[in-house]
Amino acid sequence: MSDLELPKINQKKCIACGACVEACPNQVLELVEEVLSFVRPQDCTYCALCEESCPQGAISCSYEIGWA
């Protein structure tokens, strides 16, 4: 488990299309009764593929920017 930081879901914008569920390589997201939910949050690597796949801009990953 990396830590508890997870992408933010804006449920008001989400249309439950499932694109992010398909895009997630670790099956972290699922539609539970038409509501997008983190079912395996411990497996999230914050890869942002869910954010990139969302046609509604309903998912966002925010980053701190620094030097390695």
Binding site: D3, E5, Y46, S62, E64, I65, A68
Partner: peptide, 13 residues
Amino acid sequence: IRFEHHQILLVDR
């Protein structure tokens, strides 16, 4: 750059 979870780290100025 390198992504480390919620960080973007610049490798080489």
